[in-house]
Amino acid sequence: MKTRELVTTRRGLLTGLASLGGLAVTGCSETVPPTYGNLLRMGDLLNYKAQRLLLSTGSLAREYDHRDISSVPAVGTTDPSDSKQGAFSAERGPLYDRLKAGAFQDYRLSVEGSVARARTFSLAELKRLPSRTQITRHMCEEGWTAISEWTGVPLRTVLEACGIRPSARFVTFRPFDEQADSIDMFDALHPQTILAYGMNGRDLPIQHGAPLRVRVEKQLGYKSMKFLQRIVVSDGFEDGGKLGNIQNGWSWYAGI
């Protein structure tokens, strides 16, 4: 009797370990960012879990007055059609160039994945949806901050227009340059998470992400991805592979 119990326990343990290993390798049914056995990524995961546990996910980032609006540097990709920039995409760069030449009249944002009705939105369609304007602080991982006014449609409104499946856990952003990034549903459904098409009372400038960028106000600036082309809703965690933060040595979660 006792021996059998022991064997069962050991087998259970081995099965458990094997499936854990499997999860770590495939990563597709994961509900947390993978660490690839890297100690720093484990620390990132710890801080993600600690912040989600200890902090209210619904709290709003501070909003400022018009007179607080400051100068703001444009860093990272400042034009996806410029082949000299580091994250230039040979596939989507020329497409961006054509859209830019046509003042983004032909731009379509694609929303796909774990939604009931995958569809595309033109800029005019997005601007017809209820908008939100917020004056918020952009905190760059480098250490600088800037306060700007952003106008756009809440991501939640766009996702709900497509019907979010109950199993959906993450939202991945695919821009016109060679990057990919995702946020969890807490941040995706947050009222200040908007798809911005306006900045400081005018159309979003090219160098700040025209025609559409996301604002994720409770994370560092690099999560507010510019030049959005596609939004993919998923049930499991997707780290974006070589285009994402984790495999490039950066924390996926940047609320800290």
Partner: peptide, 18 residues
């Protein structure tokens, strides 16, 4: 980390253009 942006400010906003 400081080496990435070795400028210090007062207030809420501060960057290379301020």
């Amino acid at each position: 980390i400081l080496k990435a942006h070795p400028r210090l400010y007062w207030g809420n906003a501060g960057n290379d253009l301020t």
